[in-house]
Design a protein around this nucleic acid. Structure first.
Length: 260
DNA sequence: CGAACTGTTTAAAC
DNA sequence: CGTTTAAACAGTTC
């Protein structure tokens, strides 16, 4: 369940249900899943007897603070990761996130002293857990992005606008589905060289990012956009056939008639 | 059966 | 330095 809206849903569940509960045991069976030198013994040492005190988010990265100010845990959901607290699923999955319950897909988690637990289920294993994540690697959060921040991210970039918007180092949180929806709403072609987007268009783009995130969040997730991700369905705005191209290495749907 | 999929990281090439 | 491309991860879906 990637995309920032689903990550925010997971964060809210962690905030509501996983804080201030003493951690009794750590489940970290998967070496591949632990990134940047993080190991199971290190996680145990950092977390057993400790408790989460805050669940924050920057882009798609969830950061759990603990009672020990030196211990923070970064949790990433990848493409198919899902948060479960006390065996209940947090938030709706996107299409390719499996609903099956397989214990072997629990790549990381903690058992609380009260008997409950928080588990990260990730069939495809593309998520991650790490101690003390470097939050400075990420750009400003997409959900609170200001015009000045967007303007700065775009400045001087010769890459396609879609690549810039998806670069987590420049803006944190926008993924493939959301960027296509945003650009479709803003009327900007995904392959457009970023710095050629003029100030008026940047205003429109900024508004589209904010509106899209707010609207799709209210509707229930990143898959509730207005632009069909299919070639058989014409553009709802002007009836033109949509195009499917590869932009920034990702499959991209867009309308060649109203996106320039 | 084959291809594609919401993500990130790393490497290599230009 | 910036940008692009490919590979890797593993399961589901069309």
């Amino acid at each position: 369940m990637p995309e920032i809206l689903e990550v925010e849903t997971a964060r809210r569940v962690l905030e509501a249900r996983a804080l201030n509960r003493e951690i009794a045991r750590v489940h970290a069976p998967d070496t591949w899943f632990m990134k940047r030198g993080t190991t199971a013994p290190a996680l145990r040492h950092a977390l057993v007897g400790n408790a989460f005190t805050a669940a924050r988010r920057r882009g798609k990265q969830i950061v759990l603070d603990t009672e020990n100010p030196d211990v923070r845990v970064g949790v990433h959901l990848g493409m198919s990761g899902r948060v479960l607290v006390d065996d209940e699923e947090a938030g709706d999955p996107l299409v390719y996130a499996s609903n099956r319950r397989m214990v072997k897909w629990h790549r990381f988690g903690v058992h609380f002293a009260d008997g409950g637990d928080f588990m990260l289920r990730d069939p495809r294993r593309l998520g991650a857990v790490e101690l003390d994540p470097d939050e400075s690697r990420l750009g400003p959060d997409a959900m609170t992005l200001t015009f000045a921040q967007l303007d700065h991210a775009i400045a001087k970039r010769t890459a396609p606008i879609k690549a810039v918007l998806m670069d987590q180092h420049r803006i944190a949180g926008l993924g493939n589905l959301l960027v296509d929806e945003v650009l479709w709403r803003a009327g900007i072609a995904p392959g457009r060289v970023a710095f050629t987007i003029d100030p008026a268009e940047r205003k429109v783009l900024h508004k589209a990012i904010r509106t899209t995130l707010r609207t799709l969040d209210r509707r229930g997730g990143s898959h509730t956009g207005d632009m069909p991700r299919a070639l058989e369905v014409p553009c709802p705005r002007d009836g033109a056939p949509l195009r499917r191209d590869k932009v920034a290495g990702r499959t991209t749907y867009w309308c060649p008639v109203h996106q320039h």
